[in-house]
Design a protein around this nucleic acid. Structure first.
Lengths: 252, 252
DNA sequence: CGTAGCTTTGAAGATTTTCAACCTTAGTGG
DNA sequence: CCACTAAGGTTGAAAATCTTCAAAGCTACG
């Protein structure tokens, strides 16, 4: 049995643990030697406690962040102190890519639980990307993926009923967690009902009622933060409904 | 009076007419010599007729497009043949940045009127960006801007009433047209009511009623495709409402 | 153990959608 | 040149979803 410490593959594994690889390189593209160079500019960071801010809206833009463990929400404050949640960020996902244009953050980011991140100085990343075409390509891809993600969200909010929104949200979480090796059917919601409601453009009460009803209908099981998806097929059906039909005939 | 043909600035102007500069370089950043190089990879294109497709969903990704004149919509087809509109693209704006990740287009694009575009081969743009750090930076900025744009849209759809959505939509058009030197208060809606409704996540009838009511209230004047914004202040107020109050008390 | 905060539940109210019909516009062909 | 047709737009009334308001239940944490 070979000692894993001596093979160069191990370096990739190390980088992966730092989430450098998982976030920036996972969709293939980077050579091993390049991963090493990338790893050198990534800053480690102490754990971030639940409720602690990663950055605030208006902060000067310097780093992008890759979630290593835990989860974050991004949001903007409304006039009366309320929050509009813009997104949730799970392990392996990036935060801060929207700040490049204005050179300052357009939203705030806060930890939903004790989390750890990798800090990537954007200027250094740019410089390195100039030297490594495959890295440049990778960053383009990542940003493109971010745009696609938002586009999908637009479709979700644009023309879908509350049921479809919640189902889509849960399946999105499921898929993203499964991608990281977590269970696709059982997980904890690190965000509050309030956060979910804000994100989906619904009232808190509506989200609460939906959870209750979906449980009664056997679609899922929910206990406080814990969720178990029971009928993935029917949940899928809810998501695939035609935007213009609102899927209202689906439920009794 | 100097002959504009001989000064090198003219090259920028030429590029600008091709929309290379306006889309890719306008937010400063590129040196004159670099603009010239960029201009060399941009392909001109014949006019595109109303209803003609720029690309279809699933098409292999090769170019990004900059709108020179006219306008486009991006959309996805739903199960029953309906459309979900994802965005409208005015002169100077880019189309196709969401296709990099999957290497194929995730939506279709169609001309809303007779339009012209610049075709930018993405592979060549990437290669050039490797050589020109300022161009690389510029592309990062553009993509970041695209993410911000979507984020704003999420906020719009997430928690706002129909009035606020339409007001925000109209002011967004106004601002973007003004940026290109068009009138900020009078313009033609190249898209149908159906497109607007789909984009804003509303029923066609609701959009129609809103136009009628806003006209009655003196906010604007509307005749078929033509719109004149009369009370920008009150329209602004509609947009700035707190997401959680829904601004419903604003209207009688 | 008690309080604060989050979640759930109920009923009333409101905005928006749906359904249906009518009107207008643009384009076509006799 | 006019009538005709199809598509898009407008309007009205009923239905429905979702929100708001109100209150109670539960959990967690000091």
């Amino acid at each position: 049995m070979p000692n894993p410490r001596v093979v160069s593959l191990d370096k990739i594994k190390v980088a992966c643990q730092n989430c450098t690889l998982s976030a920036l390189c996972l969709p293939l593209g980077l050579k091993e030697a390049d991963v090493e160079k990338l790893d050198q500019i990534v800053k480690r960071s102490r754990p971030i406690q639940r409720g602690e801010a990663l950055f605030h809206i208006g902060d000067p833009f310097q780093n992008i962040y890759a979630v290593k463990t835990g989860s974050f929400k991004t949001f903007v404050q409304s006039a009366d102190g309320g929050e509009q949640v813009l997104g949730f960020h799970l392990p392996g996902e990036l935060i801060g890519l929207d700040a490049i244009l204005d050179n300052q953050h357009g939203c705030s980011a806060k930890a939903l639980e004790t989390s750890s991140i990798c800090k990537i100085p954007f200027l250094q990343l740019e410089t390195l990307a100039t030297q490594l075409p495959s890295l440049q390509h990778q960053v383009f891809r990542l940003m493109s993926g971010e745009i696609s993600k938002d586009t999908n969200m637009l479709m979700l909010l644009g023309n879908r009923s509350a049921d479809e929104r919640l189902a889509t949200f849960l399946l999105s979480l499921s898929r993203r967690l499964a991608q990281r090796g977590f269970s696709a059917t059982e997980f904890n919601l690190s965000m509050s009902r309030h956060d979910i409601a804000s994100y989906l453009g619904l009232a808190v009460e509506t989200v609460s009622r939906l959870f209750t009803r979906m449980q009664q209908e056997g679609l899922l099981q929910v206990d406080r933060k814990f969720v178990r998806l029971l009928d993935m097929d029917r949940l899928d059906e809810l998501c695939e409904k035609n935007p213009h039909c609102h899927g209202r005939q689906l439920l009794p």
